[in-house]
Amino acid sequence: MTNSTVDTSNSTKLGSTVLKIENLTKRYGALTVSDSINCDLKQGEIHTLIGPNGAGKSTLVGQIAGWIKPDSGSITLNGTNITNMNVAKRSRLGLGRSFQVSCLAMELSAQRNVMLAVQARQGSSYRFWKPAASDQSLIDEADKILDRLHISEFKDTLASQLSHGKRRELEVACALALQPKVLLLDEPMAGLDPASTQGLINFLQNLKAEIPILLIEHDMDAVFQLSDRISVLVYGKLIFSGSPDQIKASPEVRKAYLGDD
């Protein structure tokens, strides 16, 4: 707690840095999975991380979200050093995320999943008396968000019975319910059909002005459509960072990632 400094004076200005990762290093034995990574996310942008399998993207996401402790380096959210904070606290500070593998309360309906996030944002989970399921303040806000993602028709469906794609969207809905300052989306397009993918692309395109997004994605069409900046992670190192056009033109990136041909 001692190393956290708060400086939110210019955090909402367009182009100001919201999330900052500095010299982040993580080793598993002899393997360096994050090799002094420097990376940031600015207000109003989508910054995409790409890289081949095993490049260390998931480990990086884990460190940003708080599940994995880095060996050194720091992560700053809106001027607050969050490197040593637990997962829940980071979420409360404004880090919203979706998972590579769906992570929902499967026995609850879509609506109840979003209502849980709304409840968490309201900071009111130590109320023991009033029934949560019929709490209008939770229902209204959850319905609005479900509507925004066009999944209202599934609101009474149990998360376990939703299709893979709908779960993805539901996760984004839960993240949005937190009214986050930053969205960390880990392969949100994986497993979506083309129509849903395009729908989600349009949605994120509109969302980025409101909430900047750090995106991990494999679908290159989506990446090039969405990204303002792209960074390439290979063997734990960020080898290149630039606009989509610069990425396409870079011989290094072609060699390491897109393939030589």
């Binding site: 979200a65 992570c103 929902l104 026995e107 999943n113 849980l116 109320r127 009033k130 709490d135 839960c174």
Partner: peptide, 20 residues
């Protein structure tokens, strides 16, 4: 209650609970 919801999600999926 809200507490009960959180408690049951802690059982179902504590990663989800921490994430919100």
């Amino acid at each position: 209650s809200r507490f009960g919801t959180a408690l049951q999600v802690a059982r179902m999926n504590d990663v989800r609970l921490a994430t919100v």
